[in-house]
Structure formats: structure tokens, C-alpha cells
């Protein structure tokens, strides 16, 4: 068997090994690389930075546990920014599997910047049906959320006294792994003129650009890289920044694999043609 043939039919487990090594090595031998902050991420930061103290932001934790490595560091960075700006935070989720994630993230934030539940932040928990929930907040937030996560009536929570609907909410930040950003844009954005920022998984980024460029999103934080950029802006060395080395190496490895695959393919095709000529 010639080298090209062997390379063409290589056992896929060797390729798995290449990726494992590319991801592992940077953890053991860390190095530092500067992170460049892209405009869509900066826009989110600037928008939050410009909000007056005490403004209300609604944070949607709309991701399943599977995408936590991308979106959890992002959630922490965004929450940290909100509490450093002394904003009031309403947390909620439209994904049943994220109910506990939102709770954990808010608690982690509250500990680090001494926020009090029910005074500085509220966690409303999970509601099914995107449309009905998003449209319901436009009329009265107590319609979709009569109670908070711990079943306390929303009307009796001190922070919620002056918050009725989107008019009282300065920004909706969707941290999502599915089609929640599109839904916010349609049901809260077009219908009620709500400002929306999106933090999303890498898979979703390219599909959200039309909304970003048409001004329907104030900004976009995409994937682990976006999270790392946000961490840089809020001066936090979190999981995303630490992950960037491994991310870089793995991308290089994949680019290398694509190139190698194509070179081998071209050589074998060239050989096959030669054989035909003979």
C-alpha cells in the first residue's frame, strides 16, 4: 500500500487523537495570546456601559447544558458587567433544561458582587412557549411570570414594583443556543420596539448577521471567542480566555487536516489519471 493510499484510509481514531492532543497540550503548556475585540461584541459592551445606574436588563438563559462550555463563561462575563454598572437584573429562561443553569449563574454573580436576590436581581425561572412568553412580557410581565422561581408572587417582590413590561426594560440580553434570538427579534423587537442583544453559540453566528447589520440587534457575542472578547472588556480572566489557546491549536489542527486531506486527494486523483493513460 502506498503512502497516499494509507493516508486516504487512515483509521479515524488517529484523527481523534490529533484533536485530543491539540486541545490538551495548551492546558499543560499555557502561553499567552492577545484577544482582539470585534465590533459586534464591543457594541454590546458599549450599550450596557451607557445605561444609567438602576436600569433594568432582562437576561434570558436559553441554552441547554450541552452548550454550557460556550455560554456559561459568556453569561458570567455579561452578568459581571451588569452588576458592576449597578443594573437591576431579571433572569429567566425559555428552555426547561436551563432552569437550574440560570439560577446557578445568578447566584455566582450575586456572591462576587454582593447582589441581593429580590432587591438587585430576580430569577423568574422557566416558561414554555416562546411566543406567548415574549408577547406576554410586552403587556405585563406578571402574565407569563405570576411567580418567581421559588413560587413567590412577582407582584410582591420589591424590585419588580416599578417593572411592568418592555417599556421598563432597557435591554434584553438573550444567551441562547437555539432560535430564541430570532423569536425575541420578532416578538419583542418588531412588536414592542425592545432593544435586544444576543450572546449565542458559534453555530448560530452566521445566521444572526443579517439581524445585526439591519440594526435589530444592538450587538452579538458569538461563541467562546465572543465570550473571551467580553471577558477582556470586563477585565476578567475566565474560562473563555483560558480556552482560547486550546481553541487556537484545535483550529490549526483542523485547518491542517483539511489541507492534508485535500493534498492526499489531489495526489491520488493525479495518480489515478496517470494509470488510465498507461
Amino acid at each position: 500500500m502506498s503512502l497516499t493510499e494509507r493516508l486516504l484510509n487512515i483509521d479515524r481514531r488517529y484523527i481523534y487523537l490529533v484533536i485530543a492532543v491539540a486541545v490538551l497540550v495548551p492546558f499543560i503548556l499555557p502561553f499567552h495570546m492577545p484577544v482582539y475585540v470585534s465590533q459586534p461584541v464591543r457594541s454590546v459592551y458599549d450599550f450596557i456601559e451607557a445605561l444609567p445606574e438602576g436600569s433594568v436588563v432582562l437576561v434570558g438563559f436559553n441554552y441547554s447544558p450541552s452548550t454550557m462550555p460556550e455560554l456559561y463563561p459568556m453569561s458570567l462575563a455579561v452578568l459581571k458587567h451588569c452588576c458592576s454598572r449597578k443594573l437591576k437584573i431579571i433572569g429567566m429562561t425559555l428552555y426547561s433544561s436551563a432552569a437550574t443553569i440560570g439560577d446557578t449563574a445568578l447566584k455566582e454573580m450575586a456572591e462576587s458582587c454582593s447582589y441581593q436576590e429580590l432587591q438587585d436581581y430576580v430569577y423568574l425561572g422557566y416558561k414554555p412557549n416562546f411566543e406567548a412568553t415574549m408577547l406576554g412580557i410586552g403587556e405585563d410581565i406578571a402574565d407569563p411570570f405570576p411567580t418567581d422561581y421559588m413560587n413567590r408572587p412577582v407582584t410582591e417582590i420589591s424590585m419588580m414594583k416599578n417593572i411592568k413590561n418592555y417599556r421598563d426594560i432597557a435591554l434584553v440580553i438573550d444567551l441562547g443556543s437555539g432560535n430564541t434570538p430570532e423569536a425575541w427579534i420578532a416578538y419583542a423587537g418588531s412588536r414592542y420596539g425592545q432593544k435586544i442583544a444576543s450572546g449565542c453559540t458559534g453555530v448560530m453566528v452566521s445566521g444572526l448577521y443579517p439581524y445585526l447589520k439591519a440594526g435589530q440587534l444592538v450587538g452579538l457575542i458569538g461563541g467562546l471567542k465572543g465570550a473571551a472578547e467580553y471577558e477582556k472588556l470586563v477585565k476578567l480572566t475566565g474560562k473563555a480566555t483560558l480556552g482560547m489557546n486550546a481553541q487556537s491549536m484545535a483550529h490549526l489542527a483542523i485547518i491542517f487536516l483539511v489541507l492534508l486531506g485535500n493534498v492526499v486527494y489531489l495526489i491520488s486523483r493525479h495518480k489515478a489519471r496517470k494509470k488510465v493513460k498507461v
Partner: peptide, 19 residues
């Protein structure tokens, strides 16, 4: 379980990228 299940895709993706 959920996160690991999905992270398998990183390997599949690499293999697909090559082959």
C-alpha cells in the same frame, strides 16, 4: 452527559474535515 455527548462532535468534525 449532555455536554460530553455534544463534544463528541468535535472529533467527528475533525474526521469529516480530513476525509
Amino acid at each position: 452527559l449532555d455536554a460530553t455527548m455534544f463534544s463528541l462532535l468535535a472529533f467527528f468534525m475533525a474526521s469529516a474535515a480530513y476525509r
